[in-house]
């Protein structure tokens, strides 16, 4: 049984669909990356796993989210409290906005411990967690307020808080986007190390295909509310099959590659509510044919263990 198994999830905000039939699964200790641009639905999908979306305006229109075999969408408030933190924890993009500015960081970690592991909620465990996420002089840092720490250190504190509840799954939503490249490398390294040490599964949400290679076993690429391609990380990066994945990989400049012009993708990312009929990438796709604009292609298996939402993708 997979740790997380999302089946045909559909989420609306008001009358606008933002997630449109997403299915994915993640084994214990595995790491899956969800990649996509703004408005593709990746963060909404991630938040739905612990049912963190405010309803209304959000509405779970269809599908199921099985976490350890039990559908999160049918859980009672008490059951939800038990899985939040205890089974699935989150780390977000802006650590500064996620931490309480008027509580010392040690106290914030202790708060999580008191909820999930009350017998261990002491100074020693707080310091051990801070040490585990690579914070130097943890005994002193517990007395700091968030503003006294840099962005990278704040993100480490967020990760320590997430670990305090000993979750089976860590959802990291753009965990390095707000950080400098040298710090970004440190945080990715830390997440990979924690995964090895603790056997914790990670769902990584990012817009940056560059960081998935160091962490994820599998990648799901999202576009306009749907998964358009899913494959093992190496296969996807080396030989992308969906035209969108191909275009995305080609459009970014690469260090050491000499090229006069970048291969830009024409047009703009369609916002929810304005998704085109048929294949949603068709208006920007160099390979689009007439039939692409009429029928929504299905996400179909292609060569071994990958899925592609394009009937004309070459294999």
């Amino acid at each position: 049984m997979p740790l997380l198994d999302i089946r045909d999830l559909r989420i609306d905000f008001g009358s606008t669909r933002v997630v449109d039939g997403v299915s994915l699964s993640l084994a214990e200790g595995g790491c899956l990356a969800m990649v996509g641009e703004s408005g593709c639905g990746k963060s909404v999908t991630a938040l739905s796993i612990a049912r963190l979306l405010p309803t209304p305006p959000a509405r779970y229109a269809a599908g199921e989210i099985a976490l350890q075999g039990r559908d999160v969408l049918r859980m009672t408030p008490a059951e939800l409290r038990a899985i939040r933190g205890g089974v699935v924890s989150y780390v977000f993009q802006e650590p500064g906005a996620s931490l309480n500015p008027v509580l010392r960081v040690g106290e914030q970690i202790r708060e999580t411990l008191r909820l999930h592991r009350p017998r261990e909620a002491g100074e020693t465990e707080v310091a051990r967690l801070l040490k585990q996420v690579g914070i130097p002089a943890p005994e002193q840092r517990t007395r700091d307020y968030p503003h006294q720490l840099s962005g990278g250190m704040q993100q480490r504190v967020m990760i320590a808080m997430a670990l305090a509840a000993a979750p089976k799954l860590l959802v990291a939503d753009e965990p390095t986007t707000a950080l400098d490249v040298t710090i970004q490398a440190q945080i990715i390294e830390l997440l990979a190390e924690l995964r090895r040490q603790l056997g914790m599964a990670i769902l990584l949400i990012t817009h940056n295909l560059g960081i998935v290679g160091d962490l994820a076993d599998r990648v799901a690429v999202m576009y306009a509310g749907q998964i358009v391609e899913e494959a093992a990380t190496g296969d996807l990066l080396r030989r992308p099959l969906h035209p969108y994945t191909q275009a995305l990989l080609r459009s970014a400049p690469v260090l050491g590659r000499k090229q006069d012009r970048l291969e830009a993708i024409p047009g703009t990312v369609p916002v929810p509510g304005q998704w085109p009929a048929g294949c949603r990438f068709a208006p920007r796709c160099p390979m689009a044919r007439a039939e692409c604009r009429e029928q929504v292609p299905v996400l179909a298996p292609r060569g071994g263990d990958r899925l592609v939402r394009c009937p004309f993708a070459e294999t």
């Binding site: 840099s150 990278g152 250190m153 400098d180 490249v181 040298t182 710090i183 970004q184 490398a185 440190q186 990715i188 390294e189 940056n208 295909l209 560059g210 960081i211 290679g213 160091d214 990380t233 190496g234 990066l237 080396r238 990989l249 970014a252 690469v254 260090l255």
Partner: peptide
């Protein structure tokens, strides 16, 4: 050197040695 080695690279085959800087600015 460290800045360049920290740039994420898409190619999973590139076996670069990444210089992870300790500490912060």
């Amino acid at each position: 050197q460290a800045l360049l080695s920290a740039v994420p690279v898409v190619d999973p085959q590139s076996k670069r040695t990444r210089i992870i800087l300790t500490g912060e600015v």
